[in-house]
Amino acid sequence: MSNQAITLHYDIDAVDFSAAGEASSGVKRTLNQLGVNPAVVKRIAIAMYEAEINAIIHAGGGAADVEITPERVEVKISDNGPGIPDLEKAMTAGWSTASETVRELGFGAGMGLPNMKRYTDDMKVESKVGEGTVVTLIVNINS
């Protein structure tokens, strides 16, 4: 891998739920092509996919910005959704505000944010009620 950072941008569209995950899939493919350790790729892919799904089910979509350097991968998922009123609760495994429709699609188990935390080396959630949420996920490539 060269020393230069690679940046990727994806729009996360909420209209077609069957397309959810395309951004994460693209990032996973890029990391595999760069020869990043598959165990590390898997951690990034899972965390980003959870964040991507969250932007779709809670915020009507958003955007993903990814920066890949030889040392680490940083994924920023931002949305203009309703925001998270109680972050501590949202981080609790099993806690979910997802609708019945979302659960029927197989999500809203209340494991999204806990899974993101579990699979990343650093995670930051910035959220303002009524304005939106930015989730930053960092995975060190040599971790």
Binding site: G21, K42, Y49, A93, G110, M111, G112
Partner: peptide
């Protein structure tokens, strides 16, 4: 049947058995 529960479970050489049928099962 919940994909986030699947993603809380990292093992190698796995079969996923599920009653959920949508493209997100394959994505997961």
């Amino acid at each position: 049947d919940l994909m986030s529960d699947v993603m809380a479970f990292v093992k190698e050489s796995v079969i996923l058995c599920t009653g959920l049928v949508n493209p997100q099962v394959v994505r997961t």
